[in-house]
């Protein structure tokens, strides 16, 4: 069963195509990671799914409801946390929660209990009467999440929920996400942190508005044609030029933190033994680098 199904979805702003003919499916109860650099069209896609933007072309359904026609019905079923988690700064924690409880017409008793649950989830029990403006980034983020899931939505859209939040809060946040997922909530989350993407059941890579690869992280990693080598070096850029001038055989070559990554066909591994290269399992970032490169080449051809 799929909670979200999208076919040939596009969105143009004037001449510019922000989302270009995207088709994807999100399994009910899974965590779908929407991955891509800034400006690639992640938010635009999410906003179309939430009924905040009308698609220029294509169609989509959420729990069988059409995203263009049934926006009002969809609103009861989804939770959405926008990129800059927007709370009312001049309201207290509890006032923000009460407000959204009202927006979703939660019944009084039930609502009170839900609000307590959200306070516990965000670790904000002792800060109920603090203004949202005075909360730290991590608390703000969890409060925004609390407001977005007060009404127990079966589907949750999170647009870069971990932007500008410290690593500890990021981990706490992901723990909550897992929990929700285990309880059956379908989650679609955008990010540009590759390590977060590793935790997703399924990933969609989006680049320049196009969905260039989809699949579970493990499967995507097998997409690399060849073997990945890692060469530790304090000056990766210099080594990179050396390899290029020596014309050592490679499929791809790029700096990766304080390392150099080289993608080679298995029979060319020996050429790099002198450089103390070692074979590593590719990360999602390696896959993404490769996909972007081949995609660029396709575009040019």
């Amino acid at each position: 069963m799929y909670a979200v199904e999208v076919t040939n979805l596009s969105r143009r702003f004037g001449e510019f195509t922000a989302v270009d003919n995207i088709s994807l499916k999100v399994k009910t109860g899974s965590i779908y990671g929407f991955l891509g650099p800034n400006g690639s069209g992640k938010s635009t896609t999410i906003r179309m799914l939430c009924g905040l933007l009308t698609p220029t072309a294509g169609s989509g359904t959420i729990l069988g409801l059409d995203i263009a026609k049934n926006t009002e019905a969809i609103k009861h079923k989804i939770g959405y946390m926008s990129q800059k988690f927007s709370l009312y700064d001049d309201l207290t924690v509890i006032e923000n929660l009460n407000f959204y409880a009202g927006m979703y017409s939660l019944p009084r008793v039930n609502g009170k209990q839900r609000i307590q649950e959200m306070l516990a989830l965000a670790g904000l029990e002792n800060r109920q009467h603090q203004l949202a403006a005075n909360l730290s980034g991590g608390f703000k983020q969890r409060l925004a999440l609390g407001c977005a899931i007060l009404h127990n939505p079966p589907i949750l859209f999170l647009d870069e929920p971990t932007g500008g939040v410290d690593p500890k809060s990021r981990r706490m946040f992901w723990d909550i996400i897992y929990n929700l997922s285990q309880q059956g909530t379908t989650i679609m989350v955008t990010t540009h942190f590759m390590d977060e993407a590793e935790h997703c059941d399924e990933i969609g890579f989006i680049y320049n508005g196009k969905l260039i690869a989809t699949g579970p992280p493990s499967q995507l990693k097998t997409a690399l044609p060849g073997t990945l080598l890692e060469i530790p070096n304090s000056k990766p850029m210099e080594l990179l030029t050396t390899i290029q001038t020596k014309q050592l055989p490679h499929l791809d070559l790029y700096p990766f933190g304080a390392m150099l990554h080289v993608l080679v066909t298995p029979d060319n591994i020996q050429a790099y033994t002198a450089l103390r290269a070692k074979i590593i399992a590719p990360s999602l970032e390696d896959v993404f680098v490769y996909l972007v490169k081949t995609h660029r080449e396709e575009d040019l051809a």
């Binding site: 609103k75 926008s82 927006m103």
Partner: peptide
């Protein structure tokens, strides 16, 4: 502030 967008996704 972006709160309007948050309002619009509510019913």
């Amino acid at each position: 502030h972006g709160t309007l967008e948050q309002l619009i996704v509510t019913p």
